[in-house]
């Protein structure tokens, strides 16, 4: 029992657990739309394009969150704008934006000589989360979850039947842009926990696991949130006891949950058939 409880006696582990659960739940709930609307690639792109924003904020001694949020919002609006025009295919446009911005971030990093902080940006540093960062993460979680609750029927309709949405005057493009902005916010929170490289895993993996287990949207969101919160706690414990990178253990626990869900879902379908 002590193996489970003792680590959380340390205050840094309590902060990390709270941050991990908040970030995981936020990403997982929103991630259901990311998975169902096949936007996984955009999620990956968003987290990578935030890097130059982080680095510029760091170099200017500004709050890192402000740099990340500005870069994330600009990317979300940019992708929304690009996908409305048809000259370049959307995945190509995103591929260009995403690698270009990431390269710019790496270039900026190489102009300074302290790499420690940038390792944290790339791979996360949840054990060092400050109270200020915790507040930002909590505010982001509140914004994202309440937006999804208030606009549930609009998000759902525009996702499976954009044509009917348009006919009754609900702009599917506008809903998509709101979704992109919420994704940018969630990604900013997640970068603190698992870093730029692994953030899209939190958006995709818990939601994908939940989609193996249910055919109802609200249930899918709840299951995804539970899987993400569980993975954050277990990942932290493994990281604590074996002294390995916490971002990686959190993501790998999510993946393990996905594999189990996949097997369980497959077995249930076989029994039902």
């Amino acid at each position: 029992m002590n193996w489970l409880i003792d680590p959380f006696r340390y205050s840094f582990m309590q902060s990390a657990a709270l941050a991990g659960v908040l970030v995981g739940v936020t990403c997982a709930v929103l991630g259901v739309y990311v998975v169902l609307r096949r936007m996984a690639f955009i999620g990956d792109a968003l987290s990578h394009t935030i890097l130059p924003g982080l680095v510029i904020a760091y170099l200017q001694n500004m709050n890192l969150f402000i740099g990340a949020i500005v870069a994330g919002m600009l990317t979300a609006l940019g992708i929304g704008w690009l996908s409305r025009r048809r000259e370049i295919r959307e995945d190509t446009a995103i591929g260009i934006l995403f690698t270009g911005m990431f390269a710019l971030g790496v270039l900026l990093i190489s102009t300074v000589h302290s790499f420690r902080d940038f390792t944290h940006m790339l791979f996360g540093y949840i054990l060092g989360v400050t109270n200020g960062q915790l507040i930002v993460i909590a505010v982001i979680a509140a914004i994202v979850v309440s937006a999804l609750a208030i606009l549930h029927k609009e998000f759902e309709l525009a996702s499976f039947d954009p044509t009917h949405a348009e006919v009754i005057g609900l702009s599917a493009d506008r809903i998509r842009t709101i979704l992109l902005l919420l994704m940018a916010l969630s990604v900013v929170g997640a970068i603190q926990a698992v870093g730029v490289v692994l953030t899209s895993a939190l958006l995709v993996v818990p939601a994908a696991a939940a989609s193996m287990l249910t055919q109802r949207l609200p249930a899918m969101m709840v299951i995804a949130a539970v899987i993400a919160a569980f993975s954050a706690l277990v990942g932290l414990l493994i990281s604590f006891h074996y002294d390995v990178a916490s971002g990686a253990t959190i993501v790998l626990t999510c993946i393990a949950c996905f594999l189990i869900s996949w097997l369980v879902g497959g077995l249930r379908r076989r029994v039902a058939a």
């Binding site: 169902l36 029927k153 759902e156 309709l157 499976f160 039947d161 044509t163 009754i168 949207l217």
Partner: peptide, 26 residues
């Protein structure tokens, strides 16, 4: 407007009842 059936994502996790309910959203 009843579009041709291909314009809807039929794999999306909603029930038939929910689909019909979206007619009320207008």
């Amino acid at each position: 407007y009843l579009a041709q059936r291909g314009e809807i994502d039929w794999h999306f996790p909603v029930s038939v009842r929910k689909l019909v309910l979206t007619g009320r959203y207008a």
